[in-house]
Simulated assay, not measured.
Amino acid sequence: MRTEGRRAPDADAPWNEIVPGLWMGGHQYRDAGGQLAPAVVDAQFDVVISLYRREGHGPAAWIDHHHVDLPDGPLSADQLEAVCLLADLAAAAVRSGRRVLVRCHSGYNRSGLVVAHALVTLGFTTEDAIFLLRRQRSPWALNNRLFVDYLTTGLDVARLLAGLEPDGLPG
């Protein structure tokens, strides 16, 4: 599910390197002629993490591919846990010298959440991680304010808070 309404323009590249070995992208972009083009992954990366899937967009069958459907909106405790696990996987792969692509529909929010948390796992501050995404991918990266709030709160805390049932809170 993709949240409409933020009116972010399509990216001008299928994917961008955020730090050496860690790439962020989407399933479509605007080519040099301004036309909408599919971002198809073949074997350019050792690990591909997809938070959105579109038939025919790869990667090649032998590539280490992890797929979890995430909405571009409020996440459950289980979904936030999946973000943490995928970010840990991405960080470990980068540390071992593997080329990693994290992608979603447009390559701004869901992929940004995972990549930013991977950067924090790699030792960056949250603020520096967000800055890098916006500088390297697009100023529109992480335009979902809720995802920025998850990052600044800390994903472990956000996961605990998301797991609280409204009827279990003191009132």
Rank of each mutant, 00 (worst) to 15 (best):
4 E>S: 13
9 P>Y: 04
11 A>F: 01
13 A>S: 10
13 A>E: 10
15 W>D: 00
19 V>H: 01
20 P>D: 08
24 M>K: 00
25 G>L: 03
26 G>C: 07
27 H>K: 05
29 Y>K: 01
29 Y>W: 08
30 R>K: 14
40 V>Q: 12
40 V>H: 05
41 V>H: 06
42 D>L: 07
43 A>I: 06
44 Q>K: 04
44 Q>R: 09
50 S>D: 14
50 S>K: 03
55 E>R: 14
55 E>Y: 02
55 E>Q: 13
58 G>V: 09
62 W>K: 04
62 W>C: 08
64 D>P: 03
66 H>W: 10
69 D>W: 02
69 D>K: 04
72 D>P: 08
75 L>S: 10
75 L>Y: 04
80 L>H: 09
81 E>A: 12
82 A>Q: 14
83 V>I: 05
87 A>K: 05
88 D>E: 15
91 A>P: 11
92 A>N: 13
92 A>W: 04
96 S>W: 08
98 R>N: 09
100 V>S: 12
103 R>C: 11
106 S>L: 12
109 N>P: 00
112 G>R: 01
112 G>Y: 00
120 V>K: 00
126 T>Q: 15
127 E>P: 02
128 D>I: 05
130 I>N: 06
131 F>K: 10
131 F>G: 07
133 L>A: 07
134 R>P: 02
135 R>Y: 07
137 R>L: 08
137 R>C: 09
145 R>N: 14
145 R>A: 15
147 F>K: 03
148 V>T: 14
151 L>S: 03
153 T>Q: 05
157 V>H: 09
160 L>C: 06
162 A>Y: 05
162 A>F: 01
166 P>H: 07
168 G>A: 15
171 G>I: 13
